[in-house]
Structures are given as structure tokens and as C-alpha cells.
């Protein structure tokens, strides 16, 4: 073992002193700590996970089993460091106690009653098939991958967010699926989903599903669309249809979740 300097001893001592609190299960955190965690959650987490953790752009947390956080330590680590390769950021601005209390609050959400959805998932599935959603989305391996895979969208997104996505797609579109419009030097217009970009080049999947790559300096025009999206808007759905479709999408919970 490496020799420990005075600072190392201090650290060790601090860890030992902190031990009882650190090993206490999050589920047994005091009401005061959970309330503190909720205050921080509302500021830092609710933007994606929704108020009360109902989900939004980020997963619904009102679930007994969080896939990546069965153990308390894993949950604390996710709040602290984020999840690489996802939109979940780390929270370096929070101190150890704040992170722990946020995690304790998230645990407390697991015992909250499940969100009641008004729609009929069976009717929603019919609507999904009729609307040909699978021409742009993969669900459980079926469909075309122009837009996001929806196989576990019921875990990853909240119902309010899904409703908004269907009615007004550009408003909530994931930056990974931004729509891009280019005009080439010979006046051809190409629209597609951006799959890559740097200062000098852009890559996309065009409407025919082909990979395209352009040098920006070769283009007559190039723009990222903010008020338009490759996904059609389905604003003309009735409330009942929308509720049905969302109810169906919320059943999509990946292989282990099963779609009822």
C-alpha cells in the first residue's frame, strides 16, 4: 500500500467518522433529509425528470425498481457522476450530503403510487400501427430507425413529454435527431436527420434513409431547423386518441418490462 501522508490520514479519519451515515440505507433517511433532497431535486432534476419525478425528457422515477440503481451506492453514483453516453449529467456542484439526500428523495418516489393514465393502450397500439409510426421508429426490433427507438420509451420518458412530442415535435426534439436542411452548389435541396457535425462538415440521413456527408463550404445554404422537424406533427389527434397512443407508449418498457 502507498504510504499515507497526514492528509491521507485525515481523509481516512473523516471516512471512518462518516461511516454510520454512509451505510444507512437511503430508504431509512430522515424526513428532514428527504425534504432537503426534494428541494434540490426540484432545482436540479425536475427539468428532465418532472416535478415529483413523473418523468419528462428524462425517465419517470416513480418506480420501485430503477434499472441502473438497484443498490443505493449505484443511485448515489449516478446522481454524482451522471450516466456516460446518456443525457444524464453529473452534479459536481452538489456536495456529498446534498447528493445523498437527493438520492434518498428519489428512493422515496419508488413507493409513491403509479401514475394513472387515462387512455387505452390497446386502442393506442392500433393507432400506432395505423399511423405508420414504424416507418420512422423501431419498437422491439420492428420498424425503421430514422427517429428514436421507442422500445423502452415508457421507462425513459414521461407521459406529458410524450404528448408534447406527438403534438409539437420540434419543441422537444432530442438534439441527436435535429432536422437539417441543405442546399447544394447545384441547387438541390436535401432534408434529413443530423447524425454528425463539426465546424467544417455535416452528416445526415436523408428522407430516403441514405447516409449523406457534406462539406459546409461546398453548400449554398445550410440550416438546422428549430421550428420544423422530420417528425410530422399529429396535432389533429383527438384528446382520446392522444391519450390512447400515450398509454400504449407508456407500456413500452424494454425486454424485461414487457409490453402488456
Amino acid at each position: 500500500m502507498r504510504k499515507t501522508g497526514p492528509g491521507g490520514l485525515a481523509l481516512l479519519a473523516a471516512l471512518l467518522l462518516a461511516a454510520p451515515a454512509a451505510t444507512q440505507p437511503l430508504a431509512e433517511a430522515s424526513a428532514e433529509d428527504v425534504a432537503h433532497g426534494k428541494r434540490i431535486f426540484d432545482i436540479h432534476c425536475s427539468r428532465c425528470h418532472g416535478l415529483d419525478g413523473v418523468g419528462g425528457e428524462g425517465p419517470n422515477l416513480m418506480r420501485e425498481n430503477l434499472r441502473r440503481s438497484v443498490e443505493d451506492d449505484a443511485l448515489i453514483e449516478i446522481v454524482d457522476d451522471g450516466i456516460a453516453g446518456t443525457d444524464m449529467p453529473g452534479h459536481g456542484s452538489l456536495n456529498t450530503r446534498e447528493i445523498r439526500n437527493v438520492a434518498a428523495y428519489v428512493r422515496s418516489l419508488g413507493v409513491a403510487p403509479r401514475e394513472e393514465l387515462p387512455g387505452d393502450p390497446v386502442a393506442g397500439k392500433e393507432l400506432y400501427d395505423m399511423t405508420l409510426c414504424s416507418t420512422c421508429h423501431i419498437t422491439n426490433g420492428e420498424g425503421i430507425a430514422l427517429g428514436p427507438d421507442l422500445s423502452d420509451v415508457g421507462l425513459l420518458r414521461g407521459s406529458v413529454f410524450l404528448k408534447e412530442s406527438i403534438q409539437d415535435p420540434p419543441k422537444v426534439v432530442n438534439p441527436r435527431y435535429r432536422t437539417v436542411l441543405v442546399e447544394t452548389a447545384d441547387s438541390r435541396t436535401v432534408m434529413g436527420v443530423r447524425t454528425g457535425e463539426d465546424t467544417f462538415t455535416i452528416q445526415m440521413i436523408d428522407e430516403a434513409g441514405r447516409h449523406r456527408s457534406f462539406r459546409k463550404s461546398d453548400l449554398r445554404e445550410f440550416q438546422l431547423l428549430t421550428d420544423e422537424s422530420m417528425m410530422m406533427s399529429y396535432a389533429d389527434f383527438t384528446d382520446a386518441e392522444l391519450n390512447d397512443l400515450v398509454a400504449y407508449l407508456m407500456t413500452l418498457r424494454g425486454p424485461e418490462g414487457g409490453s402488456e
Binding site: 449529467p89 459536481g92 452538489l94
Partner: peptide, 25 residues
């Protein structure tokens, strides 16, 4: 920019807050 409590403990981050990035565009 966020502000939080800062407690000095040798060999650990001593920050008292941090940032959240706004929308990227």
C-alpha cells in the same frame, strides 16, 4: 450558476456550487 454549502475536508472537492449548462444552441 448554483451555490451550495461548502465544507472543507482535506483531499475532497471544496466547491460550494457549480453550473448547469443551458440549452446548447
Amino acid at each position: 450558476y448554483f451555490k451550495s454549502e461548502a465544507e472543507y475536508e482535506p483531499g475532497t472537492p471544496f466547491l460550494g456550487g457549480g453550473e448547469r449548462r443551458p440549452d446548447a444552441d
